[in-house]
């Protein structure tokens, strides 16, 4: 009995351990902080995306929107408040604001869109990305097509030291916290009443509905959690880049990358998407260094191979192979 209980927690312990190894790595070798950030960024992205896709089977092609909103929220906090508040408060308010932006948009989109079937939702969310981008550019709100650049605001209010501190320390703290938060939430969803409800809805929405589960409520919950975590990642990226441009922020890029990570990792588990995030980030880092520009071509081939050969994801396939062995329990 004790062993079973331990097994149940192993995936959580393992996942947290991996993230802590990266934190340790970063504090011992600060010169690698850029690379560590890059990897943890994709760990967080994969996990946050998976909270929605993995638990509901819905694909949100507009996921980039939430990263963009997180970026805009953090930029707003700096632009509006840097002259009157200290940087820690501005950072904190930026984080809160990003969850507010993403939460509201997810609520609006989800409350309508999640009543649709999976395919229609996916199509509708592609429109979301373009719609928001053209809204910002066309109506010249939030800096229009020129975007928002906050480096100047930071330097003039706090000095150039804070530029480095925010872009290295605070961006890293935020992305690490998001990764840990995503792990804990995924684990909670795998082992809770809410998780039960989501499992039932994913399997057969009509049946779940007939047994007292409100499908829209639970799907919306997963969608909002996933969106807010995505916004945190976007906010951290804003601190890294110190600017947000609509053309880049609303491209499909991050959504597609999150999808590739999910393809590699399989859906609805904890440790797999995490490992997939590490694999993807490392491979991308490596390919961008040795064959700049070619990484997209190579990933296209990898995706086609995965879809053809491992429809449940490589990790899903691996899990099937290991079924019944002792190692299976930690792979959940």
């Amino acid at each position: 009995m004790r062993l079973i209980l331990l097994n149940k927690h192993l995936s959580l312990i393992f996942s947290l351990l991996i993230v802590f190894v990266f934190i340790l790595l970063r504090s011992i070798f600060p010169e690698y902080s850029q690379m560590v950030y890059f990897i943890v960024f994709y760990i967080a992205l994969g996990l946050a995306f998976n909270i929605f896709l993995g638990f509901t089977n819905y694909v949100c092609f507009g996921y980039t929107v939430f990263l963009a909103l997180g970026g805009y929220a953090m930029a707003h906090s700096i632009k509006w408040l840097a002259s009157s508040l200290n940087p820690v408060l501005v950072f904190t308010i930026g984080v809160l604001l990003s969850s507010l932006y993403a939460g509201i948009v997810a609520l609006l989109v989800g409350a309508i869109g999640l009543r649709l079937k999976e395919t229609y939702f996916a199509i509708a969310t592609i429109g979301l990305t373009q719609g928001l981008r053209f809204f910002i550019e066309g109506f010249r709100v939030w800096g229009g097509s020129e975007g928002l650049i906050v480096a100047g605001d930071i330097i003039s209010n706090y000095g150039s030291e804070w530029l480095t501190t925010l872009s290295i320390e605070y961006a890293d703290i935020l992305v690490f916290s998001t990764a840990v938060l995503s792990i804990v939430i995924t684990y909670y969803l795998l082992n809770s009443r809410t998780g039960y409800a989501l499992l039932a809805i994913r399997e057969d929405e009509e049946v779940a509905n007939s047994f007292g589960i409100n499908p829209v409520k639970y799907k919306l919950l997963a969608f909002m959690i996933s969106a807010i975590l995505g916004a945190f990642i976007g906010a951290s990226k804003l601190l890294k880049d110190q600017a947000v441009f609509p053309a880049e922020a609303f491209s499909l890029g991050f959504t597609l990358e999150a999808l590739v990570i999910t393809l590699i990792g399989g859906k609805g588990t904890l440790l797999f998407p995490l490992i997939a995030g590490i694999l993807y980030a490392s491979l991308k880092y490596f390919l961008t260094t040795i064959l700049p520009g070619f990484q997209l071509l190579i990933f296209a081939i990898i995706v086609i191979v995965i879809v053809e050969l491992f429809p449940e994801g490589i990790m899903g396939w691996l899990k099937k192979k290991l079924r019944g062995r002792a190692i299976e329990s930690i792979l959940i």
Binding site: R193, F211, G212
Partner: peptide, 13 residues
């Protein structure tokens, strides 16, 4: 067990 637990948890509150 899990199949039936679902209806108790939600339908049966």
């Amino acid at each position: 067990m899990d199949n039936a637990v679902l209806s108790c948890l939600f339908g049966g509150k």
